[in-house]
């Protein structure tokens, strides 16, 4: 497994190599040669070949941490880099999903549970507000609340960890 990019709910295995006059993208068993050079206006010129003809695309690119934001042909895309070692480590970590994350940016209206509470699947954990709508977050499984990481009124970004459930294993032991 190589480096990857997460993009629109998919993950792409990607390699990059230098060629005599540019780079090659290695993806899906294919090599795709291209050139990338800065343009005078601060953007970038992507050169590639399509149907035997040289194609030049003007694009804007900004990198922020692992996020690469690209404006190409009137559309904006964000691809998130995942280092090969990170991907492989993730692949090997068994059942990590013990974090309750915000599905969208917003703020916390009310908390229905506290640290140490045991909860049943489907039970209301909290109510958040986003987009002028209330969203109820329910427990994804039976378990015990390990930690509460937000206070009422607090705003947060998408994917922020709101609550932590105790890991599945200790849970199983507790019920055994």
């Amino acid at each position: 497994m190589r480096h990857g990019f997460k993009f629109q709910d998919s993950e792409y295995d990607v390699g990059l190599s230098r060629s005599a006059d540019g780079y090659r993208l290695h993806h899906d068993g294919q090599q795709w040669p291209f050139t990338l050079q800065p343009s005078e206006d601060g953007g970038w010129i992507l050169g590639s070949r399509a149907a035997g003809a040289q194609v030049l695309d003007h694009l804007s690119v900004a990198v922020d941490g692992d996020d690469v934001h690209i404006h190409l042909d009137g559309q904006t895309y964000t691809l998130r880099f995942e280092h090969a070692l990170e991907r492989l480590a993730q692949l090997n970590e068994a059942g990590a999903a013990d974090a309750i994350r915000a599905t969208m940016p917003g703020s916390l209206i009310s908390l229905a549970v506290a640290s140490g509470d045991s909860v049943k699947k489907g039970q209301t954990l909290l109510v958040m507000e986003s987009m002028k709508m209330e969203t109820t977050i329910v427990a994804p499984r039976d378990g015990i609340i390990a930690e509460v990481l937000v206070d009422a009124g607090q705003t947060f970004d998408k994917d922020a960890v709101l609550l932590a459930l105790e890991p599945q294993d200790s849970d199983a032991e507790a019920s055994a």
């Binding site: 090969a84 070692l85 492989l88 480590a89 090997n92």
Partner: peptide
């Protein structure tokens, strides 16, 4: 390493 892939990546 947990796999050959990971070992080679390391």
């Amino acid at each position: 390493a947990s796999s050959e892939d990971e070992a080679i990546a390391i």
